[in-house]
Structures are given as C-alpha cells and as structure tokens.
C-alpha cells in the first residue's frame, strides 16, 4: 500500500490537541515504588498518528493509561484541548491489547452501540453510527454475533469500530495488534491507515515494534527505558508498508538510538530496576 500522505504536520493544522507536560508517573508494587516515566513531554496535534515507541519498561503503556485517565501523574499535567485530564471518559476511547475488552454478553452491534447509548446519543443516530463503523471495519456479516465466536483480529476490529463510533477527540491504542499473528497484524495496520485516510481522526498509538511505528505513525516519540524519558521525536509521515531506503534508514536510526542508549544513558536520580 504505497502512498505519500498529504498531511504534513504542523503547517496543515497548528492546533495542539493533547499536551503532555512534564509528566512523571509512578506506581506501587507490594514492596517498592517504581517510576515508570520521568518528566516526559510531547504534544499531539489534530490529525496526528502519534506513536509512542520504546522497549518494554519505558512506560509507554503507562503514559497512554495516564492520558486515558486511569493513572494520575505525580508531577506535571496532561491537557486535552487545554483542559486537564482528571479521569477516564469517552472523549478518549481506548483500544486495548487484550481480546477480552469487548463485553461478552453483547453482540458486535450492541458492543458498538453501548458506549453511544450510555453517553445519551439518540437511538436512531447511535444505530446509524454503529452500523457505519461496523461496515468500515468490514464486519457487517458478524454484527449479530457474540464476541466469543470471533477471531482475535475480528475482536480488535470491533474494538476499533466501538472506539471510532463514539467519535472521540483522540483514539488511544495500546499495542492493539501485538497479540495478533504477523499476517493479520500487517493487514490490520493497512486497514487502520485506510480508515485514517477515510475519517481523519487523531490517534495515539503505543508499540514496541520499530517497523510498526514507522508504518503506522506520522510522528514517533522514542522513549528510553527505566524510567521512560524522551529520547527523540521523529517524522515518519512519508513511509507506509513499502520498504524504501528511507524506511530502512529510519529503522536503523531508531534501532541504534534504542540500543546505544543502553550503554551511554546517564543514570537518573530514581532507583533503577534491573534491565531485562
């Protein structure tokens, strides 16, 4: 699916949608306090396909959960449209990695309808929107099926349709394709890009795969691990699935960045956990 995306970032749309400002995240286990990210800042613009990329332990999932409102930052602030994020809400719909995010007691159609109806969208409009987005992810034939008969890829498509149907300010995707097989994953990436071409939404996408980051994203935030700190913010808007020379060069650049970091990173003030 070779294509050059017409969207070029700030010039086309100067509006900052999501502002993550100097955010430090910590969580407690039974025996210790772990710092997941340390003073991370980045800004997501309207229409961005913004990727958080880093090895495991860089706090990228924690950052996404903080944006979703499930974790409160110990330092800094997260603002959506200028208003601070205080808790979870349907203006920031999340697509999780796990397949069990759909409600098993509702059909595909009811699953997509549910957040619309619980937000008070009128029945007719909700039905129209649910139908539209189920069609967009190609699951028309399965709209009255229960989730347990669907394959992993289909469940993720439903989750995407469900999130898109609420027309959130920003779509949050937490390694949504990581649990899929390689062929399905590739197809899902293509479908996501097509959907983006079609609807033009803003998405914050978490992945640990450099390849996926370059394919899906137009802007990549590279994070270092233990705790997560911003390493770089890169452009990837000119790369799709076709492996060009530039693609390989960018892949290499990020690769070097992530692995060189292991030897030269300055020790942060917080206690480090052992690196896997």
């Amino acid at each position: 699916m070779g294509r050059v995306l017409p969207f070029t970032g700030q010039e086309a749309d100067p509006g900052v949608l999501l502002d993550v400002d100097n955010v430090t995240l910590q969580y407690k286990t039974d025996s210790r306090l772990v710092t997941a990210t340390y003073q991370v800042d980045f800004q997501v613009h309207r229409g961005d396909r913004f990727v958080l990329l880093g090895p495991s332990g860089c706090g990228k999932s924690s950052l996404l959960k903080a944006v979703a409102g499930f974790i409160k930052p110990v330092e800094g602030q997260i603002r959506l449209n200028g208003a601070p994020v205080t808790g979870p809400g349907p203006d920031r719909m999340v697509v999780f990695q796990e397949f069990d995010q759909l409600l098993p007691w509702k059909t595909v159609f009811q699953n997509v309808m549910f957040p619309l109806r619980s937000r008070g969208v009128p029945k007719r409009e909700a039905e129209d929107r649910a139908g539209t987005y189920i069609a967009k992810v190609g699951l028309d034939r399965f709209r009255d099926s229960y989730p347990h008969i669907l394959s992993g890829g289909m469940k993720q498509r439903v989750a995407i349709a469900r999130a898109m149907a609420t027309e959130p300010e920003i779509l949050l995707m937490d390694e949504p394709f990581a649990a899929l097989d390689a062929l399905t994953r590739r197809r899902m990436q293509e479908e996501l890009l097509q959907l983006w071409d079609d609807v033009r939404f803003t998405v914050l996408f978490v992945t640990h795969s450099i390849e996926e980051a370059i394919i899906v994203g137009n802007r990549i935030l590279v994070l270092s691990p233990h705790p997560g700190q911003v390493k770089a913010e890169l452009n990837a808007h000119s790369y799709g699935h076709e492996k060009s020379e530039g693609f390989a060069a960018l892949e290499n650049r990020i690769h070097t960045m992530l692995f060189a970091e292991q030897n030269t990173a300055p020790a942060p003030k917080v206690t480090r956990a052992a690196r896997p």
Partner: peptide, 21 residues
C-alpha cells in the same frame, strides 16, 4: 478482568451503573 473494568470506566460509567452494567 482489569481490561473489562477499564473498558467500562472508559465509557464514563460510575458507581451503581458501573456495577450493574
């Protein structure tokens, strides 16, 4: 599961509605 709980909260459900739905 945590995922299902988070999905429910993500819809903006709280309190009794969250428990019942």
């Amino acid at each position: 599961s945590d995922t299902l709980r988070m999905a429910g909260q993500n819809y903006g459900l709280k309190g009794l509605r969250y428990v019942m739905l």
